[in-house]
Design a binder for these strands. Structure first.
Lengths: 190, 190, 190, 190
DNA sequence: TATGAATGAGCGTTCATTCAT
DNA sequence: AATGAATGAACGCTCATTCAT
């Protein structure tokens, strides 16, 4: 076989394999032994790190949700106008999706699945809560369209996801910037 | 038990049951016997109409994709300005989603699943092709923003889906109209 | 394969196979597929009748415990002196064990196992309770040795089980009667 | 963790842990890693002393069978009347069972299990052989009831085991002596 | 034609045993 | 010599599909 990987790399190999298979085939369509094989470990090894297949899916979810959150949080430290904030978020999201297309696909398509546990959902909610506050302030300053901030967020995120799901990846900076402008037109105060 | 249903109603009962279960739990998480029970038929009966569970899923997909297409096609017969066309499409989609929330959820979340066959995908493509042509004309007339029409469609549809997935259903006519206006702002020529 | 057995015979075939394997190898050492194979059914079939391997073991236990109880109850209808009662019980037990050696082995060796549920244990207790009352009355009449009736029963049953476990089966009527007399000597008032 | 035990104590710790788990849960229900954990050693260590789980069970069996035999042999050095011999044996057995309840439970319930090897069975047989000779002599002298000595032994041992299995432990000396007398009544020449 | 009990391949998971450390 | 993480065969169980009725 391959030389034994040290434990943290083993864990990561399993999460990577799980991400690839879950995002491509779906949770219910992915056998645990397939994850093990792709990760280059024995099937039993997975159960040394997580208690169940569900737990693996939650670990994948939290791993990538956490990475994305960290990126966004870093980028937003010096917050400026809503326009600037949105531009930054859009590009962070876009670049993250380009770097980790499977992760983003997984995060989006498994968002509401029944095998995600409360902690995973709380993580998602936490991020949304922070951004909601930003939107609310922008609305108060007349920078963004009025209405339920959550709906605005859902629309913007939906537009982003829609583009990616339709297969438009690897666009030029120019094109990405134009799309960002289009989406901002949806969010901006009329 | 119940009086035997004639064949077409039997089929429909099966598709309804499958829709309910697939959209709520997912394809891989739905046993065929569960569909049969919900439909009030024997498990074997399903295999008289379709060859496999996959085929059932494809039948559900095509059934509802067809219904939605028909509605949109009807509504669009007398075509007018792009603004009007979008308004009509938005409301047809919204109303359809309110009437058949499970169907819309299923169409969206199962759009790219591996168990959908080429015919189902072609159906989706066919509808998109028609609308693409409309967008292209609108762009030529300067009514809509320039750029790849498919991306515009993906963004608009993504925004719609995003709103629904986030749980914003049962909104007032007023609210729905406002959302439509926001989305149009994303599509309109600047 | 073999022609399909009707359902009640299938169930019985499974219970028979389970009895044979559990009594010979033990519960933990018997794979479910082995039961299925011996019974001439598919492994999945077992789960149409019982929810788990544990349930099968309990069904086996109750099946045979019930049969033995029925036999004893029948035989004891016209109860007489304690001496007579014991003689009858001894022979019923002995004959039952000769007819169903695996069943008796199973009942004895699995008596206190952790996979038996409360209902099975209650069944065992119920039988003991009835006999205890008989012993108590015999003690009051001075026919049996004094002391905790449960201990007397445990000793008598233990002696019976000891003989069988040591492999002394197929004895002549004469021998069986002599053993009965020996055991009665242990129980009788001195 | 703890200071490394020298090899013989290590072995004993493993046998103790195995005894506790086998007697409580059964052989098939006891994982080797559970034995290792209870013994405070690594799972692999067990395989330095024994080749398999089966071998561990046999070692446990022989360890305790040997201890019991030794005790009985010591006590019986100056042999006397059969009555006296039985009294001594009964009390040695009883005291041994009170001191090592798990060991006695294990010896009894695992007596005929399929994972015991020939050597273990021979050990059991050897002890029985010696006692059989004693019984035979007692029968010749008219002290004990006639008949197959092995059956008499099986009955006496069975009665003993029956009492213990039924949960009657921790009895007073008086009670134990009375039970001994009852059992002797079964064995004595009429 | 419709049924649903039966099937057995394949699932998620466990655990006796191995072996790199 | 001892460890305990890793292994993968084998477990209990599920379920897509078949087929006797």
């Amino acid at each position: 076989m391959s030389p034994r990987l040290p434990s943290p790399e083993r864990q990561e190999a399993i999460l990577d394999a799980a991400l690839a298979l879950f995002s491509e085939r779906g949770f219910g369509e992915t056998p645990v032994p397939a994850i093990a094989e792709k990760a280059g470990v024995g099937a039993g090894t997975i159960y040394r790190y997580w208690e169940s297949k569900q737990d693996v899916a939650n670990a994948v979810y939290r791993h990538w949700k956490g990475k994305l959150h960290a990126r966004l949080t870093e980028a937003l430290v010096p917050l400026d106008s809503a326009r600037e904030i949105f531009r930054v978020m859009w590009h962070v999201n876009w670049n993250f999706a380009e770097e980790h297309p499977m992760a983003v696909k997984f995060l989006e398509t498994h968002h509401h699945e029944s095998y995600l546990d409360d902690e995973s959902r709380a993580m998602s909610e936490e991020g949304l809560g922070k951004i909601e506050a930003v939107v609310r302030r922008a609305q108060e300053r007349g920078e963004m369209a009025p209405g339920n901030p959550r709906i605005l967020l859902a629309m913007a995120n939906g537009a982003f996801v829609g583009i990616r799901k339709a297969g438009f990846v690897g666009l030029s900076d120019r094109e990405v910037a134009e799309l960002e402008e289009r989406v901002w037109a949806m969010l901006a105060a009329p």
